[in-house]
Amino acid sequence: MNYSNSIHQVGIFIFISLIFSISTNFFRSDSIDYISKGFDKVESLDDLNLNSEEGIKEVSFEIAQNLFEKETLFIDARAKEYYLDGHIPGAICFDDFDSLSNEIDNRIQNNEFFVVYCSDDDCGSSEELSYQLLDEGFTNIYLFKGGWKQWTDNSMPIQQP
């Protein structure tokens, strides 16, 4: 091994990093799978069961629409300025996570579920917020990935100030 050769050095760094990353992921308590599995999907209305496995589940537009009709709590994960421009009727939005968490606590009972959405499939903030809420102890979270875009594309009711 020629340690002065830059390409060899690159190889050494990659090799050491591989060894460390594999071993730490093996031994740590919060290790993750090498291949991401994504979220469980709620395929039909029958799957909407309070006693089903807890965690974050993805819902389609049709399911989100049904949940809206059942007056389920919607959480808007977008920035406040977008929320104020228009949102799903009854949805709540807080820039401060603790305030949001308290508000959800006040509004839901007995581990009831709620729906989190953001702009569209690409925004990512609904997923991030869902994980934060899961860490906070909320266990029945539905993620509506189609979000605000799919909601308005389907001419669903909106609330504006």
């Binding site: 799978d33 291949i35 991401s36 990512g124 997923e127």
Partner: peptide, 22 residues
Amino acid sequence: ISNYHVMPFGLENTVAIFLPWL
């Protein structure tokens, strides 16, 4: 990483395990 929508086959986890150590 997943939010960038460029990683195929759920490989974002592999990258997330390896890249920080590199």
